[in-house]
């Protein structure tokens, strides 16, 4: 589809918004942008470069929650991984779902599992967890098993229970 390598197209379109870009394998590009540029970058990759949003990954790291949007360009078989960081302590970042609807569910999921706030998300409700799951517990954070909250068992099955002979 493009007349030059996709990595060059990206450099040209995003300019100095790119903080870091690399192509470790033939069909993978990893690029890093600042949190404030994420909407622009996502818009350019999704609409202008005609890609498809595979999904987004959140990873709890030392700096904050790292968020990777994975785009796939079907015609060239190229995966573009757009990385950014929602910085600690407040973990706030602009919502890509406000740009295109495909990111809506995945951002809802990240919001409830990691506690990231997506600014401008059109429908910020819970998606996966039970309604009575405590609001302040985020199971995918690295500190999860330590969070002891009154009335909430992190691993209910591990509690000693003499009646249940099926417990291994």
């Amino acid at each position: 589809m493009f007349d030059k390598p996709i990595i060059d197209v990206l450099k040209e379109k995003l300019g100095d918004r790119i903080k870091d870009i690399s192509q470790p394998r033939e069909r993978r590009i990893y690029l890093f942008v600042d949190g404030k540029d994420i909407q622009d970058a996502a818009r350019i990759i999704f609409f202008d470069m005609k890609s498809r949003l595979c999904t987004a990954t959140a990873i709890d790291t030392r700096l904050g929650v790292e968020i990777i949007y994975h785009f796939f360009i079907d015609e060239d078989g190229m995966m573009i991984n757009l990385k950014t960081v929602a910085p600690r302590p407040d973990l706030i970042i602009k919502s890509v779902a406000a740009v295109f609807v495909a990111a809506e569910w995945i951002e809802r999921e990240m919001a409830e599992l990691f506690g990231v706030t997506f600014e401008g998300h059109p429908d910020p409700r819970r998606l996966l967890l039970a309604d009575d799951f405590p609001k302040c517990i985020y199971p995918y954070r690295n500190d999860y098993p330590q969070s002891k909250i009154e009335g909430f068992e992190a691993f209910p099955i591990d509690s000693p229970d003499k009646d249940n002979t099926n417990d291994l």
């Binding site: 199971p139 992190a154 691993f155 209910p156 099955i157 591990d158 291994l168």
Partner: peptide
Amino acid sequence: NGNIFRKSYNMAGP
């Protein structure tokens, strides 16, 4: 008994 999922945070008992 919960099989491979028995350590999950969302497990509410078999």
